[in-house]
Nucleic acid binder design. Structure first.
Lengths: 208, 208
DNA sequence: CCATGCAGTTAACAACTGTTCTCTGGAATG
DNA sequence: CATTCCAGAGAACAGTTGTTAACTGCATGG
């Protein structure tokens, strides 16, 4: 399928990925707007000037990180929402899925939560675009559900946006609870599930 | 009531406020973690070393900004929520109130949204503490409402947290729409109102 | 009125930043 | 096999940063 690229292009992509990985680690304790290009190259063990072969600036690198963090998440979102039925177990499974994702990709989640309102405009824009895509995809899935009969397209997008924002809030809560005792993570799990349930109830009675 | 402080203390507080104001302006286009102390003093027109007379570090200044941005907001929140009745006009008035606050204090709102998940731990902690206080106050007001009869304290806090987060999301949306055409701000207004309405509906049917 | 306190200044420091230009070694190309 | 290409290295630049120490001048309190 994919063209086997030469050992030269391969090495280049390897360095590029090393820069992204190093940046992600450094960004756990600071914001992108304070991330220095030298800092990143130093962490990788490469000359500062090599940075320019891959990114115009750290803001540019940030945009690439957004793609890495959110780009591959679309199928996951779609299938999660599409598995219809508003049962309590379904909500629990969704919350559990968020918890798992935070556990396996904490740095990516932290990056998105941090830079969504961060100090670097192009990165904010990239995140906003991705989240809007998420909302539209959730809306399309919700539209297929019989519960959505009689809903206007606008109201469906309103609900989808609410769900997407709620997922991000939940993810951020799990992030803060990562090093906390298990009971704290349980508290977050129950809180998030009840909030989703309340929204689902509001959804079912929306047209009355 | 307040003791008239000497011309010396007065001048000191004036400089301190100038530092806070200058920092807030600089923070509109960057994050706190990249804000330099020299940058702030330069904007005020004061020697870099003068900074230390007021703050240990820029992180320390950030914590002071949190107090300035959120400290005086508690009475406003209380009265907004306490004015009972879930009528549509009440929701509209709440959304309008948020819009007004964002218009009159855009830099403060931006700062809180940005640093809530930002790269400076003490500031994140200060914001979290304030938001938790908000949630508890909202919970206490909700408890007085007859609609809350039969609700557990835990569920009330769950709903209060949902409201607080939703207010912040709404404020952040208004912020992004500040320089946008009036129709975009109207769109945000209607979106936020419908989301609050859906939550209110969920609230009314919670105990079924 | 005089001694003390202290907000703000001045000067200097080592360390760091982004960006430029020049160079090199090895892969890619024909 | 010879030529071109290009990812990365190296050195140098002007400018920035946080922090230190010792100072000055003026409001304060005895």
């Amino acid at each position: 399928m994919s063209h086997t690229l030469g050992i030269r292009q391969a090495q280049k992509q390897k360095t590029r990925q090393a820069l992204l990985d190093a940046a992600l680690v450094l960004l756990e304790e600071q914001s992108l707007s304070s991330l220095g290009l030298r800092e990143v190259t130093r962490a990788v063990g490469v000359a500062p000037t090599a940075f320019y072969r891959h990114f115009r600036s750290t803001a540019d690198l940030g945009v690439a990180l957004v793609e890495e963090a959110l780009g591959s998440l679309h199928p996951m979102i779609r299938t999660t929402v599409s598995t219809a039925s508003d049962s309590a177990e379904r909500i629990d499974r969704t919350v559990e899925l968020i918890a798992r994702h935070v556990e396996t990709h904490p740095a990516h989640v932290r990056f998105v939560a941090r830079e969504r309102h961060g100090g670097v405009q192009p990165v904010r824009q990239a995140i906003r675009a991705q989240l809007e895509r998420f909302a539209e995809e959730v809306r399309d899935e919700l539209a297929k559900d019989p519960v959505s009969e009689g809903w206007s397209a606008d109201d469906l997008l309103m609900l989808a946006t609410l769900y997407v924002d709620q997922m991000l809030i939940t993810a951020s809560l799990f992030l803060e609870a990562l090093d906390a005792p298990a009971e704290e993570r349980d508290r977050v799990t129950r809180l998030a599930a009840r909030q989703l349930r309340l929204i689902s109830i509001g959804r079912r009675h929306w047209l009355e």
